[in-house]
């Protein structure tokens, strides 16, 4: 039994893709080119029942754009009434005040809006949707107005890595309490466009050093990173629940048909939540076991940081090499 399953009898979070359908065609999207059958409402509720039975405390709807799913409100309400903590990530296009109020009424704890640049034209260009910046900002304002907690998600890429402070200011101006500066993933369209969008390892190192310094000085806004490669920096002092990628350890991902993958960026199915025994998947999946006990390979061998970073982002290593154990291509060491 790994350290993870010795402690955790189930993941803490399920990132749940109800549908891959989306009204945007973003340059970096992991899922825009995916297709998958979707489940009927009763099956979605059965999934909620399983998550409750397994004591999974958090679900986060992503996609695809959750707000275009007809079942979103009903499933979210069913889940929140069943005791789950429900959140979601949206591009904000459909998030007017009425939608924000409805999200609050069905029990959402927080809603994240993706904004990738403080400059409207850059955001709109990246998202291939004119007017999307304005609608995303209005979405944040709508959430603030109805009193529903908002977060802002920004995928760091070539278009914004030198202007992340302005993104933080934008968040402050619109009542956001927490900003996620997500690392760029080379999955789906992100893989196809990585030459244009991804930073070099040295640029990632410089970005994180700067962003960590800003984080340490910032008191009025919570700044979060989700990149395990950051743990190799001595400046990174946070105590995390697990070492390395949290995928397959603290979280799992649900595809629209109920298939489970370690995370949205690793398209390896480890079972189906409706058809397979969940505990067998969680405790016995060879894929999850491999992700939880990575072996130092290549330049990770003998690297003093491996104990902390566990080779960095498993999804990125897998996308570029097909091997979980290979070093994260973002690693600067």
């Amino acid at each position: 039994m790994s350290e993870v399953t010795e402690m955790f009898s189930a993941p803490l979070t399920f990132n749940w893709t109800l549908s891959y359908r989306c009204n945007f065609t973003c340059d970096h999207c992991y899922s825009r080119d995916e297709e998958c059958p979707e489940l009927i409402t009763d099956d979605l509720k059965r999934i909620v029942d399983i998550l409750v039975e397994q004591q999974v405390p958090f679900i986060n709807f992503g996609g695809g754009e959750p707000l275009i799913c007809k079942d979103l409100y009903e499933i979210a309400e069913y889940a929140s009434k069943s005791g789950l903590n429900v959140s979601m990530n949206s591009n904000g296009w459909l998030l007017d005040e009425a939608a924000a109020q409805r999200l609050k009424d069905v029990g959402f704890k927080s809603v994240g809006i993706s904004i990738d640049s403080f400059e409207p034209s850059l955001h709109d260009g990246f998202r291939n949707m004119p007017g999307s910046f304005e609608r995303a900002v209005h979405g944040l304002d709508a959430l603030h107005k109805v009193g529903l907690k908002s977060t802002m998600s920004s995928v760091i890429s070539r278009i914004n890595y030198q202007a992340f402070r302005e993104l933080l200011d934008l968040a402050r101006d619109h009542g956001v309490g927490q900003v996620y500066l997500h690392n760029f993933k080379c999955s789906g369209r992100g893989f196809k466009n990585r030459e244009d969008l991804d930073l070099t390892p040295e640029e990632w190192q410089a970005f994180y050093l700067e962003a960590l310094a800003v984080k340490h000085q910032t008191k009025d806004l919570k700044i979060s990173f989700d990149d395990p490669v950051i743990a190799s920096l001595p400046e990174y002092q946070e105590k995390t629940m697990v070492k390395g990628s949290s995928c397959g350890k603290l979280s799992l991902h649900l595809q629209p048909n109920g298939d489970i993958t370690p995370c949205g960026f690793i398209p390896v199915v480890v079972g189906n939540i409706l058809n397979d025994d969940f505990e067998s998947i969680w405790f016995d999946s060879p894929v999850l076991k491999a992700m939880r006990s990575k072996e130092a390979t290549g330049k990770c061998s003998g690297c003093a940081a491996f104990d902390d970073c566990q080779g960095g982002c498993t999804a990125r290593a897998f996308a570029t090499t097909g091997d979980f154990n290979q070093p994260d291509p973002h690693c600067w060491k």
């Binding site: 402690m7 955790f8 009898s9 004591q55 405390p57 958090f58």
Partner: peptide, 9 residues
């Protein structure tokens, strides 16, 4: 506070 009894543990 979100909490959970780790039953197996």
């Amino acid at each position: 506070i979100v909490w959970r009894v780790e039953k197996r543990r």
